[in-house]
């Protein structure tokens, strides 16, 4: 089932939303951070690569790990754990960077491990609970699949540097 074209020109998060709204079945990539499950629309994922050292950027927000060389292009890498307010990620052998299409540019997301690609239906989705907490602004929706709850991420919120949590 190939429902999403992989070179969609619209920003991925928006594309995801419209697909949800249209009631079409969809695929998401799920991954783990600190034991919790998260997911992004498969159409936004360009590639998944192992960790490589980043070049830190001066005066960037704490969740901006720096930039890496992706075959000649320079992309910024973000630490999802740090962004969720869980402290800096320990980088290990299984750490991976998910390269995401953020619309006008690419960005990398450092996560603990990639789990799966799952098919979902819009009816599986629940709105994100409205309780204030660190990193809650990055949640787009919750996916309840049997026992498991997967948090779908708003990619543009993840890469945003000035969030309420950081300016406070």
């Amino acid at each position: 089932m190939s429902t999403l074209s992989t070179d969609t020109p619209v920003p991925a998060a928006v594309a995801g939303m419209s697909a949800f709204a249209a009631g079409k079945p969809q695929q998401i990539v799920t991954f783990k951070v600190e034991g919790r499950s998260f997911g992004v629309d498969v159409g936004a994922v360009r590639e998944i690569k192992g960790w490589q050292p980043t070049t830190p950027l001066p005066n960037a927000a704490a969740h901006v790990l720096g930039v890496i060389n992706l075959r000649g292009a320079i992309i910024a890498v973000y630490d999802l754990r740090q962004r969720l307010g869980l402290g800096p990620s320990p980088v290990s052998r299984s750490s991976v960077v998910i390269v995401l299409d953020l619309g006008e540019r690419y960005g990398g997301l450092l996560v603990d491990a990639v789990s799966d690609i799952v098919d979902i239906l819009p009816s599986d989705l629940r709105p994100a609970p409205d309780i204030a907490g660190d990193g809650d602004d990055v949640l787009q929706a919750l996916l309840v699949k049997g026992e498991e709850v997967v948090a779908l991420l708003d990619l543009h919120a993840i890469v945003r540097e000035s969030t309420p949590a950081f300016t406070a």
């Binding site: 070049t55 960037a60 720096g66 930039v67 910024a76 540019r105």
Partner: peptide
Amino acid sequence: SFRRVEGVSAATILGDGLVAL
């Protein structure tokens, strides 16, 4: 690829494949 960074005009890739500002 990111945004304007104060004090940095651009980036480059050095011989070992790592990025330098």
